[in-house]
Simulated assay, not measured.
Amino acid sequence: MSDAAPTPAPAPAAPPRVDCVADSAGGITFDIVVLDTAEPVLVLRRRGGSGGTADETRLPLTPAGEGHMRAVLPNTMELAEGRWDVFLDERAVEPGVRDLRALVDRVPDEEGGVAVRVPYPTADGRLAVRSWVRLPHAEAGDIVLGEGVCTVEGTLYGAETAAGAVAEVRRGGTVHRVPAGGEKGGFAFTVAYDALAEPPVAAEQLWELWLRPDASSEPVRVSRVLDDVWDRKNVFVYPAHQGEGYRAAPCYTTDNDLCVRITP
């Protein structure tokens, strides 16, 4: 019997690292150090999709200078709303340098709405792309806090407010409507917390905010997506109002949709 120690298994190779640059029109350029790859293609796969062709986007890698290859996601290529994980030969990739400067304070040119793509690191350290497609789109701006109320101001893309414009505050099948106004592409409305916090408030309630631009229009979700923040939930935190048996504050979801949170 040999006393030789067993040969240790080779350490798993580190995931490929990808740098990316986002442009203001919605395109993304991916750069990667050349690796031994059977198929020079970068793959974006939509999380939670059915696995069909609509849930996968394949971007060819081409030489881009010494030791690097490049893939381009053009702004003209459709990318459904959701979270898209990035792969190379079925291997998840790690985020390298992410240049998102062009996304800050972005003003879209789209007349019908907006399409936004933000590369970001996932919780487990992989690279993904968050995509929003909003047609039309109600971009939340300043949120002004008052005594028992919050006023939401913003910009509407792909539509205009007109007679009969209202904001809808929704939770399940319950809808509260408040007047909305605005001019030159803007909108504003005020939400009173007491109207939402019908006693007793026994558990957390999350009320979604929607804008109906006029009496005949479909409602538009109020969100904030025109910058480089892919998840506002724990970044934008607003002071809470203490009401009779409840606390209330505006908040964002992980999808950057604006809500009002009511808690006991």
Rank of each mutant, 00 (worst) to 15 (best):
M1D: 11
M1H: 11
S2H: 08
D3P: 00
D3S: 13
D3H: 14
A5V: 09
A11M: 13
A11E: 15
A13D: 13
A13H: 07
R17V: 15
V18S: 04
V21R: 13
V21A: 13
A22C: 12
A25Y: 09
A25W: 06
A25G: 12
G27T: 08
I28C: 08
T29S: 15
T29H: 00
F30C: 01
D31N: 12
D31I: 07
I32W: 00
V33T: 14
V34K: 11
L35S: 11
V41Y: 02
L42R: 03
V43Q: 10
V43S: 11
R47D: 14
S50A: 15
G52T: 12
A54G: 10
D55P: 07
R58T: 12
L59G: 01
L59C: 07
L61S: 01
A64R: 07
E66Y: 11
G67K: 05
H68L: 14
M69R: 05
M69G: 00
P74Y: 10
N75Y: 15
G82E: 03
R83E: 14
R91C: 12
R91L: 13
A92N: 11
V93W: 00
E94D: 12
E94H: 10
V97S: 13
D105Y: 10
G112N: 12
G112V: 09
V114P: 00
A115L: 08
V116C: 09
V116W: 00
R117H: 09
V118G: 03
P121D: 10
T122L: 06
T122E: 07
D124M: 10
V129F: 10
R130C: 05
S131W: 01
S131M: 05
W132R: 08
V133W: 10
R134A: 14
R134P: 00
L135E: 12
A138F: 02
A138S: 10
E139I: 06
E139P: 04
V144F: 06
L145T: 00
E147W: 01
G148Q: 03
T151A: 09
G154F: 07
T155V: 15
Y157M: 06
G158F: 07
A159D: 14
E160I: 07
A162C: 04
V166A: 10
A167H: 03
E168V: 04
E168Q: 15
R170Q: 15
T174L: 12
V175P: 03
A180I: 06
G182T: 09
G185K: 09
F187K: 02
F187A: 04
T190L: 08
T190Y: 03
V191S: 05
V191T: 08
A192E: 12
Y193T: 02
Y193M: 04
D194F: 05
L196F: 06
A197F: 01
V201S: 01
L209S: 05
L211H: 01
A215I: 09
A215W: 11
A215P: 02
S217V: 01
P219D: 04
V220M: 04
V222F: 04
V222N: 02
V225R: 00
L226R: 02
V229G: 00
V229D: 06
W230F: 14
D231Q: 07
R232H: 06
R232N: 02
R232W: 08
N234A: 14
V237C: 09
H241L: 01
H241N: 03
Q242G: 09
G243H: 02
Y246D: 03
R247F: 08
A248R: 01
A249L: 09
A249W: 07
Y252F: 15
T253G: 14
L258I: 05
L258S: 01
C259H: 12
P264Q: 11
